[in-house]
Design a protein around this nucleic acid. Structure first.
Lengths: 349, 349
DNA sequence: CTGAAAGCGCTTACAG
DNA sequence: CTGAAAGCGCTTACAG
């Protein structure tokens, strides 16, 4: 690989002059600049980032830290959209994206500190669905700009998250508009902040209608379809079962559809089912799942934008909240006239 | 951040001696080493990678290039498994992973050359489902080790791919064992190499049974569920329709299930459906989809391992072929006794 | 064994 | 405007 000295010799200037041209700095005569630019173009010379970084005192690399606790995250195509969003923004700043995954948040946090210490990256975006405090604590060893995609305690770190509250509010209103009055919910334990927000949204919508959530109608899963199936059975086994089930993620909603099918319940005639996330699966289920969509791309892009604001020494106001959108499909419909002994009638397999 | 000079002063040695300790080099007395190591531990000093890279003449960063033509790839959770596999291997070599996506192969190829030219990365793994030649040509501008996950012309570049042939062979044998004799296939146009291989596998299995693929029973989609649905209808509209449909990816298989449902065909009693990939969706469909699983993690890990062999100057024998596995689920069953006017009987909505 | 010097490929003040 | 010198933070021969 040719160095700046080689090219400078070719262009018959000093390396320092070549450097000025390379960086579009003033104090170079028109003619010199033209000649040098021509040589650069002819040779296709690109200065070594390695040397540049040493001088700049930074790496121009943004870390993306992904703990994948319970590998749930990694079955989530959403993440790829987030990456694309981050990359789009990073490219504009001539930053590259470094990927680091880890099994737990603690592993991710220590990987992050190592990357910062050895100055491989200038800072990071952390995708954290659970608790950002391990990161905050570990990062005290080596402070650097970082941004969380997810929920963080106020003032701890800049963050971006989807409008989980608003999405759940819209979905619940949708069911209320369809005449549903008994709403079952499939939540999870432990419950990430995002699900707290979704539950808040549900409660707010119910309150608007003068209703409140029957705590017997809140079942618990672990985000997996199988757990959603079990939870749906629990709900439908109640003496006064719900006419609609709102599963707080799509995968559990898929399980709920399956539970309904095994009981011979028609969707949406006998039971409405709503999910959250709008994963690729959602539109492929039979019937297609009504759900709440969030834009991973915008989450990523916004997170990166905030990161660069921090890097520039600004203190952006966060959390930034990315809108969500109700996508009404075939799995939700008018509430059945009377819910009673309709469930459980058998059907040819 | 403290530099090696700071720490050397603290430990009362020359920077060059500190460097030796840091890199576990000989010719340091036992006592000096002990003292220096203690200071390093106490200060938590980690040498700057930036300076190291300048000297080493390499970046210790491996690029991962992902063209996402038709964004099909990006709805594929598979990709995340590939990343994890690559990262696992890279970590052992103390390499970091740089992510670069691009809309087309050409964009990706030019991004790759730019990354190489500015010595941000030492080489790359390219996920290419279509044609690697644009990469090969562009890379002549700046040769570097690179490995393809996908199919490549022999001798052009080291590559890794799944055993598409074997997977399709196993799936077809499975259907033949169940008594199916008229097999419909949903393929695509244009057809990536992987699908050619899957078709080869189908033909090989049919040949074993003294059969051959009826070309009227090969329909064409574009990998999307909607296209699979259309293609399935075409197949089922034939005068002598198939008793089993092998869609060459899971998303089209999901479409085929939907087509069957809309015609009132029971799965698998009236029609068997088999997919390929085993995406998360597959086990959630009703009935769960019989399909062929490939391990993204192993693909990634193997690709990285081959990359490092290249980096070490070896010439690994490739393509490496990662096994696939038939996953028999509920969507495939014994062939119906006689296929004739069974299709199309209506059903309560 | 230990340390002073040179150098990796650039950029940044600073003279001329 | 132009270029010689110093320096970013390390490592690598090379003396001592």
């Amino acid at each position: 690989m040719p160095t700046i000295d080689d090219i400078a010799r070719l262009a018959q200037v000093a390396p320092s002059t070549l450097s000025k041209v390379l960086n579009h700095r003033p104090h170079v005569s028109r003619e010199t600049r033209a000649r040098v630019e021509q040589v650069i173009a002819a040779t296709g010379f690109v200065p070594s980032q390695r040397a540049r970084r040493l001088i700049a005192g930074r790496s121009f690399i943004l870390g993306l830290l992904i703990p994948y606790t319970s590998d749930q995250l990694f079955t989530d195509p959403h993440l790829l959209e987030i990456m694309r969003g981050i990359e789009a923004e990073a490219n504009e700043r001539e930053y590259n994206l470094l990927l680091s995954t880890a099994r737990t948040s603690l592993d991710a946090a220590s990987a992050l500190v190592r990357l910062l210490r050895s100055d491989v990256i200038d800072g990071a975006i952390v995708v954290e669905t659970h608790d950002v405090r391990p990161f905050a604590e570990t990062l005290q060893q080596r402070p650097a700009p970082w941004v969380v995609i997810g929920y963080a305690p106020p003032g701890m770190v800049p963050s971006v998250h989807a409008d989980d509250f608003g999405g759940a509010l819209a979905a619940t209103r949708h069911l209320l508009d369809l005449g549903h009055r008994r709403l079952g919910v499939i939540s999870s334990l432990p419950r990430p902040f995002a699900l707290d927000e979704r539950l808040r949204g549900i409660n707010a919508a119910l309150a608007e209608a003068g209703l409140r959530l029957d705590e017997h109608l809140v079942a618990t899963g672990d985000f997996s379809p199988a757990s959603g199936e079990r939870a749906a059975h629990c709900l439908l086994d109640q003496p006064d079962p719900p006419t609609a089930i709102f599963a707080l993620n799509d995968r559990m909603a898929a399980g709920a559809l399956r539970a309904a099918a095994s009981r011979g319940l028609r969707i949406p005639e006998d039971l409405s089912v709503v999910g959250f996330d709008d994963i690729a699966l959602a539109s492929l289920l039979l019937p297609p799942l009504t759900t709440v969509r969030q834009s991973g791309y915008r989450l990523g892009r916004t997170a990166a934008s905030i990161f660069f604001q921090c890097l520039d020494g600004q203190a952006p106001e966060t959390p930034a909240i990315i809108p969500t959108e109700l996508v009404a499909r075939g799995s939700s419909g008018p509430a059945p006239p009377r819910r009673c002994a309709e469930r459980g009638f058998p059907r040819a397999p």
